[in-house]
């Protein structure tokens, strides 16, 4: 069962934007899409470590700001010709608050 941590109000994350959660093993990026969904992914691109939170959010994808790899926010898998994936974590909105699965605290460093 997922334990949820209340992180912030939905409006603290800009639509089509992202904010960070700092954890002991690196940052997790919280994305908010055009249709007001939230997604939590490691903030490290598997290519060369680019901060995904700084990319452009379009539909349910994020484009890495360093070399334009594109990832599906649902699965964390790189799209198109690129090969790689980013860890994803449970996240949801309840009553205008953003909740994230508590495993982001306990996780090991993304391999």
């Amino acid at each position: 069962m997922t334990n949820w941590i209340d992180i912030a109000a939905l409006d603290d994350i800009p639509q089509q934007g992202a904010r960070l959660i700092r954890t002991r093993t690196g940052c997790v990026a919280l994305f908010r899409t055009h249709d007001d969904r939230v997604f939590a992914l490691d903030d490290r691109c598997p290519h060369k470590g680019g901060p995904l939170s700084e990319g452009i959010v379009a539909g349910h994808t994020i484009t890495c700001p360093l070399h334009n790899w594109v990832f599906d926010l649902n699965t964390g898998i790189a799209q198109g010709a690129d090969d790689g994936s980013v860890a994803t974590y449970p996240a949801k909105i309840e009553n205008g608050r953003v909740l994230v699965g508590s495993e982001i605290i306990a996780r090991r460093h993304a391999a």
Partner: peptide
């Protein structure tokens, strides 16, 4: 300025 800093800091929360 807020947008330039992390939304939350979970570094101190105990791991389960």
């Amino acid at each position: 300025r807020d947008e330039f800093s992390p939304l939350a800091d979970c570094r101190l929360e105990a791991a389960e």
